[in-house]
Design a protein around this nucleic acid. Sequence first.
DNA 1: GAGTCGTGGGA
DNA 2: TTCCCAAGACT
Length: 302
Amino acid sequence: MHRLAPPLIDWYRENARDLPWRDPDFGAWGILVSEFMLQQTPVTRVIPRLEEWLMRWPTPAHLAAAPVADAVRAWANLGYPRRAMWLHQAAVEITARHGGVIPRDVDALLALPGIGDYTARAVAAFAYGERVPVVDTNTRRVLARAIEGKSQPGPAAKRDLAVMAEILPTEPIAAAIVNAAAMELGAVVCTARSARCELCPLASLCAWRAAGYPDTGDTRPKQAKYEGSDRQARGAVLAELRAADGSGVLVDALVTHWPDSDQRDRAILTLLADGLIETVGDMARLAGDGRSTARAGATIDV
DNA sequence: GAGTCGTGGGA
DNA sequence: TTCCCAAGACT
């Protein structure tokens, strides 16, 4: 077994947070939904929305039968609402092509919308016990420090999976724990802002610590400013349509206060292109909203 | 590979 | 106040 695995396993058994999706009875659907929600959204904000979601849609078939607009509303403030749309579409495909059962095969999971390298492997490992490397931003930071001796990881790369595979135990259950432990360690001890090495089970083995904590630079892509961005404009448009009923809002009445009218129009057009909203005549609404008169796809002139 | 895509809490 | 960043995916 790799020298990093035993201390990770022992530490995780003692220190893992008691999170809902770690309940052995949580189920593959709950784990899949939690992984969608956790893509770029903090744990504390996910938990209440996740519990509501699973109460309302206890299986993929339940979600698949609902309008996608309901999913986007229930997504609430989790951010990146395309994820709600993709999760809904994934539920449709799981219901139609997988008999309502979440796939356990990584490639089958990757074929679903909104599921990439991380989520596919997380579901395979944590819902089904598959022995596959799972690499998220926390794991990449832990590996960069402990093994490569760097202060921060580089941008996500395919090679990360091979590095993680190196330290995975042979036995699938132990492998799943090592996957979870690396993520957990990066989330609560070896964080982006600080390294609380006095709490770290890998401290005595850590290459970065042994090298004296050199600042090796930060090559991660920097996040664009949100204030004044197209994302902010899209958020404002979508917030108005979430608050509206199925009849929608006059296109010309959407976010009329927005200071940049070109940006406002661009927000509406890209939301249409993404399939998050639709127009019927001069009205706009969440895609799939409204009742029986749905005629999506009409164009608007802005 | 680099840019884009929400939202809000904490440093 | 301002900035960072949070279990990524897609184009």
